[in-house]
Design a protein around this nucleic acid. Structure first.
Lengths: 245, 245
DNA sequence: TTGACTAAAACAAACGTTTGATCTATATCT
DNA sequence: AGATATAGATCAAACGTTTGTTTTAGTCAA
């Protein structure tokens, strides 16, 4: 479940006056996982309300911990916020890896057909992870908020996940269309294509209201996926034709 | 410049102990337009930082006004926030009306060709207003923030602008594709299409970083518009073919 | 005289942070 | 083995600051 980055984050623990933890203290027993509960509660509230609107007292209450535990474990509110960022960078990486392993692990596709198939998987994954999954909802909110108002935490997520993923998708798009996957045009177009799905989360309130729904259900997400794959196919095929000419 | 809604917002003024303003007091001269300066500063700071992160003291300072003037004119911070919402609802309406009058004023297009042309204009307008125009940047931020975290202010913007515009675009899309413009499928697809452009504002930080740019320039926006119109055309034509069969 | 506004101060509430005591599992010593 | 010391985790309480709001007094133009 845990990513490399999430694990790294745990080491960041503030060592009060004394010496650093002796390399591997086998998890301290008194009170179970307060640190993790705080991290989880912080993700929830920071994602829902943002850094300033969420108070450390509310975070502590949700985590069933004492307020002082936040300063104790993380150093302060801002450091907690950064810790959440590296925490979810790990979460996203893990989720993508288990949901679409070929995108992060396998070598890039070789034929346009295989590349198009990979793009289909990417679109489905984006919809599932970003819009569908209920437990990724707060993660998505946190990330979107960071995008609109980048803080130091933004670099953590960008460097470890976004840049890598976007690069890979551009590569596949280039192969599918027979064009240069490094070109500005391809990068831009990939953003536009993925932006379609992202808006479902950003503009959730408007979209649901206009559709007369309470929440996104399986039926609707299925329809969304079909549409997105159709859009991708139409655009890819058109570009492919142009590239051949 | 001012819209009906922006004008209406001005009436909401808190009438301190005394009587309501006599219907049309011809602008009070002592200290010029403090109310408007506060409204403007609030839009700036609320858009940039959000409701909680922007303090009334900062708003007052930016507006070169006294803190007490906020309570005096609007009643309090939350009321000021709502006033900003109706203020920008007017701004957006005005901007759309001057940029693409046919979309809000003219009767719906009758031929698929005319409808497709209108969709092109819509996409260009969305890019120009939402992404291009520098003075609409803070407005876009305010609205996007509201979408992610709807407050009572959300209804103001939704009811007066979004619902109307989306309905009109769906109508055009239906005519262009020869399908029912009221259907859920069309509504959804229109959101997806517009979402492409909106992501350029939401994910501005990632997009600019990936493109190696400092800001969106005319050249890039031109390319974006070309791409979006191409996407729309491909999708519309495909749906049109399916509808005829 | 009245309504719009400023300047400065005061206010209670909420905020992030710090303090000092307490608890408990473990390590050390006799 | 049993007593003692140690150190990290947790707690309630208090600290100083900032917050939104209100008050008081005064200025200025219509």
């Amino acid at each position: 479940m845990d990513g490399v980055l999430a694990a790294a984050a745990r080491k960041e623990k503030r060592v009060p006056p004394g010496k650093p933890t002796p390399a591997q203290s086998p998890a301290n027993i008194p009170g179970d996982g307060t640190r993790e509960r705080i991290l989880d509660a912080a993700l929830e509230l920071f994602g829902e309300r943002g850094l300033h609107a969420a108070s450390v007292r509310d975070v502590a209450k949700l985590a069933r911990a004492n307020v002082a535990a936040i300063s104790y474990h993380f150093g302060g509110k801002e450091e907690l916020y950064r810790a959440v960022a590296t925490y979810i960078a790990g979460l996203i990486g893990d989720r993508v890896a288990e949901r679409a392993p070929q995108v992060v692990l396998s070598p890039p596709p070789e034929t346009p057909e295989a590349a198009l198939a990979e793009l289909d998987i990417v679109m489905e994954t984006v919809v599932d992870v970003l819009v569908g999954s209920e437990d990724m909802r707060r993660v998505a909110r946190f990330v979107l908020r960071e995008q609109m108002q980048p803080s130091p935490a933004f670099d953590i997520i960008y460097d470890s996940v976004m840049q890598r993923l976007h690069e890979r998708v551009c590569l596949a798009f280039g192969i599918a269309t027979g064009t240069d996957g490094q070109s500005e045009a391809v990068r831009l177009r990939v953003f536009l294509l993925i932006g379609q799905a992202i808006f479902l989360r950003v503009g959730e309130a408007v979209v649901l209201r206009r559709l007369g729904l309470e929440r996104y259900d399986e039926r609707l997400l299925g329809e969304v996926k079909t549409m997105l794959k159709q859009h991708v196919r139409l655009i890819v095929e058109d570009l492919h034709r142009s590239a051949e000419a």
